[in-house]
Design a protein around this nucleic acid. Sequence first.
DNA 1: TCAAAAGTGTTAATAGTACACCCATGA
DNA 2: TCATGGGTGTACTATTAACACTTTTGA
Lengths: 225, 225
Amino acid sequence: MNQYYKKRAKFHVAVDCIIFGFDEGELKLLLLQRNFQPAKGQWSLMGGFAEEEENIDDSAKRVLNELTGLDNVYMKQVGTFGNIDRDPGERVISVVYYALIKINEYDRELVNKHNAHWVKMDEIPPLIFDHPLMVKQALELMQRQSSYEPIGFNLLPPLFTLTQLQTLYEAINAEKMDKRNFRKKVATMDFIEKTENIDKTNSRRGAYLYKFNNKVYKKDPKFNL
Amino acid sequence: MNQYYKKRAKFHVAVDCIIFGFDEGELKLLLLQRNFQPAKGQWSLMGGFAEEEENIDDSAKRVLNELTGLDNVYMKQVGTFGNIDRDPGERVISVVYYALIKINEYDRELVNKHNAHWVKMDEIPPLIFDHPLMVKQALELMQRQSSYEPIGFNLLPPLFTLTQLQTLYEAINAEKMDKRNFRKKVATMDFIEKTENIDKTNSRRGAYLYKFNNKVYKKDPKFNL
DNA sequence: TCAAAAGTGTTAATAGTACACCCATGA
DNA sequence: TCATGGGTGTACTATTAACACTTTTGA
């Protein structure tokens, strides 16, 4: 060990994940009803400890994967929560990330094993420790980012209708939007491409399916919704 | 020690501060030309290790105070940098904050003792480790936040002219603004209050001094510049 | 034929941008 | 008197907001 670091205190470091999903027109979080100690029986975020030989970003990816089986998920650091007593058991510094996942693609078995459940944003149960604050900050960050970066598509299937897209943004921002104004704006973004496919699950008439073209977006990365 | 945490790895945790100041129409950073090991002689951010019985936010305040002698400084967490090899000496996880200080109020003696210097944003020397990335992210965050929250006033004296205010925002965003449009916008924000005082340091005619009234702002917190 | 979701334009209001001259003062 | 920074208004453009009816189709 290098002499300059010898005498310094060391800390437990954890990651916690705020996992967003979009289903039935609602924004949801994947939360654990803990079937393990500590705080067994209570609700919490999915979390885990950072490991010795692991970048913190990778810890977050690993923890998310342990619960959902998913890789290559959009994740963003929210911040670090480092108050002395935030975990009543022992001091743990937690680095918090939010994740956006397609709600039909996760591994049901793993989720069941962890006793995790999708909960609507406005029906979130009391959470342990400072997890409520983490959720609040994650939501605020995600709302802001989703308005100027095309991250919402991570919550949708590869092909989606304009109604789905609008409902998603209404759910994220918790406010209704005007259909014609919304579509006018979408029409200006040529990286949101109409396909020939039609989805008939929600109407007899059917609605055109669209896709997000990231290559086109990268050429002229301007987005706001 | 609680049984659930026993086997977990522990980590050195540090804080690093990106200290912004505004002087002579320019945005500047307070950087250290290190007169101590490791990396002695090289340029870096002001940093320090978190202590056992200290909230991380308080570690940042302490470290800032050690360099500047200042308390009650506006600070905001930028994020946490946790790659394994970011510090070549040993693994250190760093929580990064930016600070906005009034450039005439810091403690010269302390700053000299640390061999710290104010450096213009466009003349930043090569920095150690991942400090350049930290600076980049801090600047981007500060630019975004300064556009929708009245944090810029932390960089100005309590009384300031409109020219100073405009120059500040021009420095933050690295772009010129139109004087009349700028003043029109300021006039709509009634928490930016004109005083009877006149500053004659920059013109024979003198310019009215304004102040930021936080109480008025809180009543109707809308800001954008 | 009718219920239900998809799709489509125009107008008004607001916000943002561009632009040039007079004012007050002390040296 | 003149050089210097302080202060002011108007016209144009772009963006956003409000608003209602027709289309398609399968049951």
